[in-house]
Amino acid sequence: MKSYRKPYIREVSRSWWMSDPFYIKYMVREATAVLNLIVSIELLVFCLIAAIDPNNAERTISDLIQSPAIIILNIIALIAAMYHAITWFNLMPKAVRIFQPYPPQGTRLIPAGFYIIMLWCITLLASAIIALVLIFAV
């Protein structure tokens, strides 16, 4: 069906998000996805090294992460991952809306702080496990 509507669409410049710190923060949050994707490719490269040359993989990967370019990439990716975690956890209570299981029932939502604190506790636990496995080889 052909539409005869001719709505007025205001021109928006490509740099629309530069005008407001709120929009800049939004775009930075979206840009963290690029770095997260790069890190996932980096981990894939480690896996490929391990599959191709299993005997020397530990040495090759260690040499790789000691190269200045990878260290700089990792530091930038760490900042991005932290920003992602902060914004992601703050977003969680907006997406998951569950009523309090205790009185007054069915009227009040579980407070946002509860989700955020729980998620950071899980992150702390996961971080401890990762550090034990990867650095201390427990």
Binding site: V39, S62, I71, W88, L119
Partner: peptide, 25 residues
């Protein structure tokens, strides 16, 4: 959000430690 910060911190630490701390990937 759960894994990347710790994973990257481990990689950076292993990256600066010349041979003393290995990355047990």
């Amino acid at each position: 959000a759960f894994a990347f910060p710790a994973l990257l911190i481990c990689m950076i630490i292993a990256g600066f430690g010349d041979g003393h701390t290995t990355f047990h990937f």
